[in-house]
Computed example of a mutant assay.
Amino acid sequence: MKSKIFNIKNLYLLTTGIIVILVGLFSGVVDILQTQGVISASQELGYPLYFFTLLGIFKILGAIALVLPRKFESIKLVAYSGFAFDFIFASFSHFSIGDSFTKILTPLVFLIILDISYKLKDKY
């Protein structure tokens, strides 16, 4: 029997991995460390820097929640919801200040990736 490289489990792992590693862990740490990019974004968007510290903590906690076993379904649901709100508000924030189409669209692409992960979480 041939193994399939592109199957539901691999797609779930890929989409969840993107959210956990890129958005949850990497972006969370960057928000907490308040790199120059975060400082610039804070100034452009009009958010105080302490907002990004808390956002970074929640991103890391959300990443941890997404890799918990299935018996923690309610915690995972909160994490999925939190990431969805983050992406929607990020996109709207960029839209509200007239940012480029790329900055508006990027969080929505992550929202689609998150949605795929969410829809596949019980299917593999």
Rank of each mutant, 00 (worst) to 15 (best):
M1K: 09
M1H: 12
M1A: 02
M1F: 10
S3A: 03
S3T: 11
K4P: 05
K4V: 11
F6Q: 00
N7C: 12
N7K: 11
I8R: 15
I8D: 11
K9L: 14
L11W: 13
Y12D: 04
L13D: 08
T16D: 02
I18K: 07
I19Y: 00
V20T: 06
L22N: 12
G24M: 09
F26H: 08
S27Y: 08
V29G: 11
D31H: 15
D31K: 09
I32H: 06
L33T: 14
L33I: 14
L33G: 03
Q34N: 13
T35H: 06
T35G: 13
T35E: 14
Q36W: 11
Q36F: 13
G37M: 06
A41S: 12
A41I: 08
Q43G: 10
E44S: 00
L45R: 00
G46S: 05
P48K: 06
L49A: 02
Y50G: 05
F51H: 13
T53R: 07
T53G: 09
L54I: 15
L54G: 11
L54T: 13
L54M: 14
G56C: 09
I57A: 15
F58M: 14
I60G: 05
L61P: 08
G62H: 04
G62Y: 03
I64Y: 13
L66D: 02
L66T: 01
L68K: 09
K71V: 04
E73G: 05
S74F: 13
K76M: 02
K76E: 08
L77F: 15
V78L: 06
Y80Q: 02
S81G: 11
F85A: 13
F87N: 01
I88Q: 03
F89K: 02
F89Y: 06
A90K: 02
S91W: 01
F92G: 03
S93Y: 08
S93G: 10
H94V: 06
F95I: 13
I97E: 10
G98Q: 10
G98K: 07
D99S: 14
K103G: 07
K103N: 14
I104N: 01
P107K: 00
L108Y: 11
V109F: 05
F110D: 03
I116F: 11
S117F: 01
L120A: 08
L120G: 03
K121R: 11
K121W: 01
D122N: 09
K123N: 07
